Amino acid sequence: MNFNEKTLEVKNIYNGKIIDVDVHTVELPNGRKSSREIVNHSGGVAIIAYKDKDTILLVEQFRKPIEKVILELPAGKIEKDEDIELCGIRELEEETGYKAKEFSYLGKMVTSPGFCNEYIYIYKAENLYKGKDNLADEDEFINVREMKIEKIKEMIKSGEIIDAKTISAFMFL
Rank of each mutant, 00 (worst) to 15 (best):
S104P: 00
K108G: 05
F103R: 08
N40Q: 14
G43Q: 06
A49R: 05
R90D: 09
G131Y: 05
I149G: 07
E94V: 02
I149K: 14
L135Y: 06
K53A: 12
C87W: 02
E126I: 03
L92K: 01
A125W: 06
N30R: 08
I56L: 14
D133H: 08
R36Y: 03
L92C: 03
G107K: 07
G76T: 05
I89E: 06
L135Q: 12
G131N: 05
D54M: 07
N127P: 00
I149M: 13
I89R: 13
V59E: 12
F141Y: 15
V69A: 09
K51A: 09
E138C: 11
K77P: 00
L71C: 03
A136Y: 01
E140R: 11
K77E: 10
Y121I: 01
Y123R: 07
Y119A: 06
N134C: 08
L58H: 03
R32P: 00
E146K: 14
Y129D: 06
C116M: 13
E91V: 08
I70D: 01
K68M: 09
F103I: 08
M147K: 14
E27D: 09
K148L: 10
G43P: 03
E82W: 03
I122P: 00
L58K: 05
T96A: 07
E150T: 13
P29I: 03
I66N: 03
H41P: 00
L71H: 12
V144T: 15
F115K: 07
I66F: 02
I142D: 07
K33A: 01
L71R: 14
A46R: 00
V45F: 07
